[in-house]
Computed example of a mutant assay.
Amino acid sequence: MWRQMRVTRDRSSKWFVSSDEYPYEHFASYCSGSAYFITQDLIRPLFETTRSIPFFWIDDYYITGLLPRAIRPTIHVNYLYINSLFVVNVDLVEQRFLSPFGLASLAFAHMPLSVNRLLHVWQHLMINSQSAQKYLNRTYI
């Protein structure tokens, strides 16, 4: 999870962002990575918000930063900080997602370099997503 990530203003960087695109010097909190998990109760509200929040080309920031910030007044969004920026305790990620209570409280996570374990957790989430609803105890239309 990135907190107060400085916006890259170096034109030679592939991550260059102009002041016109994003006028602030830091990004709000967001998750970075090739994969992250979003609990089922957030999917519809995040999707609906895409109609009012213009797309931002840094998709990690758009999906896990801008959109959640836009739905926060009505829906509580939790970020789970798993470990350091590049070293992730994959055991902790599995433990959180494989627990029914973890399904209810976790919004986003990042598991780099763990494709098989990521697949295992994804399969578990797909199989148990119905049972997770009883822990969420809320519905978004």
Rank of each mutant, 00 (worst) to 15 (best):
V7F: 00
F16E: 01
I82V: 12
D41I: 06
V90A: 14
S18W: 04
S32R: 04
A104P: 01
Y61A: 02
V90R: 11
Q130D: 13
M126W: 11
P100G: 02
I38F: 08
Y24M: 11
H26L: 11
Y62C: 03
C31W: 11
S131E: 10
P45H: 12
R3K: 13
E48M: 08
A109S: 10
L119N: 15
Y22T: 00
P54L: 09
L67Y: 05
W57A: 08
I58S: 08
I82S: 09
P68Q: 07
F97I: 14
N89S: 13
Y140P: 00
L67T: 03
F16V: 01
V90L: 14
S34Y: 11
W15S: 06
I127F: 15
N78L: 08
Q130W: 12
P54R: 12
P112N: 15
K14F: 01
F55D: 07
S32H: 08
A104I: 05
I82A: 02
E48I: 05
P73G: 14
D91N: 14
N83V: 04
E25A: 07
L103R: 05
K14R: 10
Y36A: 02
L119A: 15
P73T: 14
D60V: 04
V7D: 00
L67M: 05
F97V: 12
M126K: 14
S114W: 06
G65E: 01
S99D: 10
L42M: 09
R72V: 02
D91Q: 14
P100N: 04
V121Q: 03
E21F: 03
L113E: 10
E48S: 13
V90H: 13
R3P: 01
Y24L: 13
R117Q: 09
V77Q: 11
R72M: 07
R3V: 07
I58Q: 11
S52H: 09
W122Y: 15
F108V: 03
S19A: 11
H26T: 15
Y22P: 01
L98R: 10
W122R: 12
P68T: 08
H76S: 10
A35R: 06
V88W: 10
S34R: 12
D20K: 09
F108G: 00
Y81S: 13
A70Y: 14
F37Q: 00
